[in-house]
Amino acid sequence: MIRVLIVDDEVLVRAGFRMILQAADDIEIVAEASDGKEAVDAVLKHWPDVVLMDVRMSGMDGLRALQEISRLPKAPKVIMLTTFDLDDYVHTALRAGASGFLLKDTSPHDLMSAVRTVAAGSAMLSPTVTKRLIDEFAGREPGRTRQAREQLATLTGREMDVLNGVADGLSNAEIAKQLSMSEATVKAHVSRTLTKLGLANRVQAAMVARDAAGW
């Protein structure tokens, strides 16, 4: 059973997410919270597997709560929710270790899929949204290009080929087809790349690749 905490300052939004997720046999809602402070307290009390958290809330916002939750031992996976598909808060959240990013108008099927995907240890960001976020924000900080190139120097040529596909917003299946590899091999390359670079998910890896290219 996947244990979920829902965090949003709007009661109706929380109720909507609860109704959708409770329909799944493998998902349990363990608590709700209306701001970041309540979210941190709820995590410490219930230790959920996944936190669905709004980016913008009164009081402690989702980003600050994410930063506090990420520092906890055995921290849960966090999916950030927003009405904005390109947002500085979202970019910062991804760099801080968020495992997913979803718009609030995401379909019920995709919401359930996101929770399951993130609980299983993968990042949940559609390739289209991944590419738009990276295109919009990568390379803005001074010195990031040099730092990123130093990080990527540890990768093999094949790992770089796979990483470039990730940076283009491709799924593992699309990368496998492009490079004439099995999907399992691509997944293994992505996993090794994340370990070598010390990153939490493929979105962060894609941002490093874009930074290195100076995009």
Rank of each mutant, 00 (worst) to 15 (best):
V4S: 12
V4I: 15
I6W: 06
I6Q: 03
E10H: 14
E10F: 04
V11A: 08
A15P: 08
F17A: 05
R18F: 03
L21D: 07
L21F: 04
A24H: 15
A24S: 12
A24P: 14
D26F: 10
I27R: 10
I27W: 11
A33E: 09
K37A: 14
D41G: 14
A42I: 10
A42L: 05
A42T: 15
V43L: 04
H46A: 09
W47F: 15
D49Q: 12
V50W: 11
V50Y: 11
V50N: 12
V50P: 09
V51H: 08
V51L: 02
L52I: 05
M53H: 10
D54T: 02
V55A: 01
M60T: 02
Q67H: 10
I69C: 06
P73E: 07
A75S: 08
A75C: 02
M80E: 11
M80N: 10
F84I: 15
F84A: 04
T92I: 08
A93S: 03
A93L: 05
A93Q: 05
R95P: 00
A96H: 04
G97K: 05
S99F: 11
G100D: 04
G100Y: 02
F101L: 08
F101D: 03
L103C: 06
S107H: 10
L111S: 06
L111E: 10
S113Q: 13
A114N: 07
A114P: 03
V118K: 05
G121P: 08
G121S: 12
G121I: 02
S122N: 15
P127M: 08
T128M: 07
V129M: 11
T130N: 01
T130K: 13
T130Q: 12
D135F: 01
E136N: 10
G139R: 00
R140T: 06
G143L: 00
R144S: 00
T145L: 00
R146S: 12
A148H: 02
A148K: 04
E150D: 11
T154R: 15
T154I: 10
T154G: 14
L155P: 14
L155N: 13
T156A: 15
G157M: 05
R158G: 09
R158I: 15
G165L: 10
G165K: 02
V166N: 11
D168N: 05
L170D: 10
S171W: 13
S171N: 09
N172L: 03
E174Q: 09
E174C: 01
I175S: 02
E183G: 07
K187Q: 12
A188R: 09
R192L: 02
R192F: 01
G198Q: 14
N201I: 09
R202S: 06
M207A: 15
R210D: 01
R210N: 00
D211P: 08
A213E: 01
W215L: 09
